[in-house]
Design a protein around this nucleic acid. Sequence first.
DNA 1: CTAACCGCCCGCCAAT
DNA 2: ACATTGGCGGGCGGTT
Length: 317
Amino acid sequence: MSHEVVVVASAGISPFRLGIPSAVFGQLPHYRVSICARTPGVLPTDGGFDVTVDRGLEALATADTVVIPSWDPRAEVPLDLCEALTEAHDRGARVIGLCLGAFAVAAAGLADGREVATHWAYADLLARRHPAVRVRSDVLWTDLGDVVTSAGNAAGLDCCLHVVRQDLGAAVARDVARGLVLAPHREGSQAQFVPGVGGRVDPSDPLGPATEWMLHRLADPVTLDEWATASGMSRRTFTRRFRTELGTSPHQWLLGQRLTRAKDLLESADGTVETIARSVGLGTGASLRQHFVRRYGTTPSAHREAFAPRGVAAVSG
DNA sequence: CTAACCGCCCGCCAAT
DNA sequence: ACATTGGCGGGCGGTT
């Protein structure tokens, strides 16, 4: 029942990044978090103090989730670490690379022909070093199911939170987020607040009203032109501003919001998949299904099944 | 799943 | 000169 999370520390690591997995997973009894290193013992950090690590790479052999919180891109990824990672991965463990941890993930060959996220400043370097890997610097994280990678420091928190969300559901993730005083949910595709507890629009964000407006009529068949007009812009200016401000297109953003809402509803509400699809503005169940599988790697009904039996949402009895 | 339609996205460029 | 806007068009991707 307990899920073992093993974090791989390396010399000179940032203590902040090293602490991210503990900060998120450590809050929940569901997880057991431990730190390991290639060479156990006293490990220097870049924060002016050392940490003591007592487990070695053999810890990966029993891990359910392995986290590489960062990696010095100038340093070669040692063969034994690569092997330990691939071995854990082949065994079925999930591998998470935060920030520059993607360098280790890529070196282990876990991302060949696939997509990873990393810090934007190092995306080019990573792409050049591993041509078979598609590197994204425009997203907060990517989740391939077995391999999860995230961009810079704060995105690591969002990424781990996302993993909690996957494992234990939206309600638990929201509680953890509240404990950390963190945005309850930032989508991987880009930063965006969610409707619900606490979150509010950033007043310096000129598109705040536009996104807010749309969230209030998620279920309606609003065309891009209507949306743009309601926001006081031409269609072209609207889409352009949207991309520069939010890093995605209006329609993609909207799709993300709809899927998020649908996922919430699947976890916490009754109603057929068809009904939920309609209520979040996806015309038909087939449409929801298609996007759900692409983004989350499961079908809507399977996802609901994964959460319903355990009593997380069993409030009404 | 495939086909056909329809709406979105974004490079390009003229206008402001 | 320079920045921002918005119309156009065609390819792309979503919906049916």
